[in-house]
Amino acid sequence: MARTLRRAQRTARQRGGRVRVLARAGGIGDVLWAAAASDLAAKHSPQDVLLFLTQPDMLEAVRLASPDITVIAPHLPNPHMQSLLRRVCSDVVEMVYEPHDTAGTHLVRTYLKQLGCPQQMPHPAWHFKHEPLPRAASPVACIYTGPSWPVREVPSSVWDEVVRRLKSELGLRVLQIMPLRPTVRLIPGCDERIIGWPLADLCNLFDQSALVLTIDSIMLHLAAGTRAPLVAIFGPTLASCRMFETPRQRSLAATVDCAGCHHRTPRLHWETGCPYDIACMQQISADPIMTAASQVLAPAAR
């Protein structure tokens, strides 16, 4: 640690810049976009030397967003490490995302503002090795049903119908993306389960897929950074805070008054509880999902 800081200080002096420690812990999506903002900040101020502070299990996510940044990933909790770093570095920035303060603002723009960078900088693209996958008999659709917060999950009966129609109406081969220790239901009709793949391998898969269909989750963030044809389903969170919509990357949400409650004060839910029985997700049906899927579907798959 001390050697890393001394090297950074020496390089910053040679460039006529400063050493900045950028700190972000938490979930993969938070760290991924914070690292992306750090990567953009490094390009905006090349004279500075940036060090990224996070927890050890986030190294894979940081490398995906910013392969060249120096990462400090100690086993000390972030607040303790920040206190130590402030003794030798005057510029320690804790990147914080407060949903109720930034409703409608994408994560990366929130972090760029905190770093003093223009918020209209280019959309980040993840850094991964592009390797051709075995050619499938039919175009591939990747779906992610969870796990996530219960308030962000679509009813399983909807997924059953969506998978059936993706295959029968659009002629797609459907892969269900799952974590290393699956805790979600296997959707009938899926052709294959992708379990516990590294983040970079998932990006490579999405990049070559005809469609990615997901709830608000890490899979949304991964697909957004690959420019894959994407449909993301939202309820308590706002699409504008999670993705940049394009003709090939679209969001879908139920039209209920309480939608986006995650960004309100007071917040109506916290991951599990909802006074309206999660109406925003319960009202999602297969029809609008299929319409959106048809609209973004990669041209080769039509």
Rank of each mutant, 00 (worst) to 15 (best):
R86E: 02
V21R: 11
E271Q: 09
S148G: 15
Q9F: 12
R267N: 10
S285Q: 11
A2H: 15
D207S: 07
P56W: 03
L199T: 07
C190Y: 11
T246R: 03
Q47T: 08
N78L: 10
A42G: 14
L175H: 00
A259P: 02
C241T: 08
S157V: 13
L5M: 11
A279S: 11
T11G: 00
I187R: 13
A23H: 07
H221M: 13
H75I: 04
G29K: 03
L50E: 08
A223I: 04
T105P: 02
D277R: 06
L199Q: 06
R152E: 06
F206S: 09
L186I: 13
I233R: 09
M81E: 08
P118A: 14
A8M: 09
P67S: 03
P275D: 08
A37E: 13
E271C: 04
G171L: 00
T145S: 12
E60N: 06
L22Y: 11
H75P: 07
G260I: 03
I218F: 05
G26M: 12
V19C: 05
R6W: 01
A23L: 11
R173E: 00
T102P: 01
L180E: 14
A300M: 00
A293C: 12
H75E: 15
P46A: 08
S45I: 06
A228Y: 00
T4F: 05
T272N: 12
I28D: 05
I289C: 09
P147W: 06
L220Q: 06
S285F: 04
P198L: 02
T265D: 05
A42T: 14
P67R: 09
L268A: 15
G27M: 05
V158A: 07
L268Y: 10
V92H: 02
A279Q: 14
A200Y: 03
E98I: 08
T145K: 03
A136M: 01
L238H: 04
L297S: 00
M81D: 06
S168G: 07
D287E: 08
M219N: 12
Q82A: 13
C258I: 13
Q9Y: 11
S148W: 03
L59E: 13
Y276S: 06
S285M: 08
S90M: 06
K113I: 13
I215G: 08
V296S: 06
V92L: 10
Q114G: 15
D57S: 08
V158F: 05
A141C: 04
V163S: 08
E245Y: 02
L115R: 15
A36N: 04
L238K: 05
L51F: 09
A239W: 02
R302H: 00
V62L: 03
V212F: 04
R18I: 13
Q283V: 11
P132W: 01
S294M: 02
A239E: 11
S45A: 12
Q119M: 15
R24P: 11
T272M: 09
D39T: 13
Q249K: 03
A23M: 10
F206V: 06
S209W: 00
